[in-house]
Amino acid sequence: MGQWKQKTLTRKNWMAFTGLFLCFFLVIHLLGNLQLMLPDEKAHLQFNAYSHLLSGNIIIKIISWVLYASIIAHVIYAVIITLTNKRSREVKYHYDKRGEVSKWYTRNMGLLGTIIFIFLVIHFRDFWYVYKFGSLPLDEQGHKDLYKLVVAVYSETWYVLVYVLCMVALCYHLLHGFFSAARTLGVYHPRYVQWIRVFGWIYSVGICAGFAWIPVYVHFLK
């Protein structure tokens, strides 16, 4: 893998592209999930109908393939980049206080990413896999009853806790990732850099607060 001819900057570009696509996906995902917050009856049918719609539409299908590809590429590039970086300093410092001049989460994107990856595996197993390949009962409109599944899963306290903690990890990952992607792609004008910083901050906190709020809400109120 070390003999990969791609340039460091090109690899970082792919990280940025896939990462930004995932950022975009998170917005759509969150908007869809917000339907869970509707009054119980309405939420039940609408959420299931929405899930059905997503699984049938060809455009959505294509996007979902891009999504899978993005996740896989983001992970593979992350591994390649990390391995190359390891080789760029073979002897470590004996006494290392370099952390004093940068933020911890900017240095630990790999760790945060790993947490998010593990979360994704659980997340996919619990919902995506069950929806696609498992046998779910149908609701009154004849759609697979994902809503019931969600409410059931979120009734587990430990699960909600894990979920919320993972959202905190995601938040920090996004906080640096969004801004870093913009820099990798070459936004160098100080004014726009500032805007992106502010926007990235609002985006990261907004998305993660939204995602974290839903299981908490469902857990306590449904």
């Binding site: 340039k7 460091t8 300093r89 940068s102």
Partner: peptide
């Protein structure tokens, strides 16, 4: 950039250190 890579320097993670 080609030469920088050939020398074995790593990627930028934008930590700003």
């Amino acid at each position: 950039v080609d030469q920088m890579d050939a020398e074995g320097f790593g990627h930028c993670s934008n930590t700003e250190a």
